[in-house]
Design a protein around this nucleic acid. Structure first.
Lengths: 195, 195
DNA sequence: AGGCTCCGTAGACAGTGTCTACCAACTTGA
DNA sequence: TCAAGTTGGTAGACACTGTCTACGGAGCCT
């Protein structure tokens, strides 16, 4: 399966490269086909619709993010709070660095044609967070899914509003570090100064 | 200016109604023109581009949200924490109820054609939050803009991920109340049970 | 060889945003 | 009063999009 030269895989790969280099707006069906060197009708053989292809591209984004976070956690001490902070920092870093892909992954119109797969792709990440937070903050009355959700939404909002440009407007810089630090302190309690 | 029958105002109003009733995807230039009863070229007399019209529509969304929150704060006790909680609840409620408009307001591609106006429309809200949080949590080492930003991003992420559908997936329901409560406790300290 | 399925091409269609030419009505100036 | 100019909208063309359908050429199997 390495170096899969099939058109289906090539289309997805072209899409991934394209969204990374030129942003989410350039991901038209015909442009992807063009860069893959095939006619505009060819993708239809593998993807019933444009959105189905985009969903597949987005799925690789979730896989990539999951892999990055898994790798990050592997190189991390065993303290649940430190691990959560590392996870959080990776998530935000991914969203800021891989802007187009992040935007694609959470596009609302992708879901309607893809009720199952895409949302599920985010579940492993969420479960990591739930597991960590139930160990970092045991004995709270609040269910760990809610605690993890509150943290996740905070991270997600940081990325979203930073990429929207309101950080620069409100705090004078695009640096997410102060916000991230404040968010972690809010959800996990006092942290030592950021690394 | 009441009952302004000019085409410019009518186009914006049609857009507002349309995004509320049919969602953000139906906001094509030609559809707006059609529903306003004019030809597809007419809007060009008032808006140089499609995105300029969309920006104007989004701006009314920010104005509406600002008005709603101002009204909410007017009917609220003087306690900064209670006021912040009310502001937060209104923000999230707006984003969940007025989904299409919320999506439009924070569309990334609207900003490029509108470097100034649109982002600025969100500033008054942010400044309310900064003011309230500097009174609710004085003496923290963290600047109030950062504290307010951390809270705002949390609220924003709650809306975004709820509308994306991950709340239902992660917590089994679309109800934002537990998450909102957890977020408020995280950023403001222990709260009494939600109203 | 004859069928057959796979896989991609090519063209049509309706829809989009933008641009340009046109034109009718109203305002303005001498 | 009448001519000129401005305002505000129409209508059609253009390039582009996603989808659909008819076609064709390999390769394979009996």
């Amino acid at each position: 399966m390495v170096g899969d030269t099939g058109l289906r895989a090539r289309l997805v790969q072209v899409g991934v490269d394209l969204v990374r280099s030129d942003g989410a707006a350039t991901l038209t069906l015909r442009e992807i086909a063009r860069r893959a060197g095939v006619s505009h009708g060819a993708p239809r053989r593998y993807f019933p619709t444009h959105l189905a292809l985009l969903s597949e591209i987005a799925r690789t984004g979730f896989a990539d993010l999951t892999a990055q976070i898994t790798q990050t956690l592997a190189d991390c001490p065993d303290d649940p709070r430190a691990r959560l902070a590392a996870l959080a920092r990776r998530y935000v870093d991914f969203g800021c660095r891989d802007r187009g892909m992040f935007e694609l992954m959470f596009r609302h119109d992708l879901l309607e044609s893809n009720h199952l797969g895409l949302r599920d792709s985010s579940l492993p990440l969420f479960e990591m967070a739930v597991d960590l937070i139930s160990r970092a903050r045991p004995g709270t009355g609040t269910p760990p899914t809610v605690l993890a959700g509150a943290l996740w939404t905070n991270l997600h909002g940081i990325v979203e509003l930073r990429n929207w440009g309101s950080l620069r407007l409100a705090t004078g810089t695009d640096d997410v570090e102060p916000l991230l630090h404040a968010a972690l302190e809010a959800h996990l309690g006092p942290m030592r100064p950021s690394p």
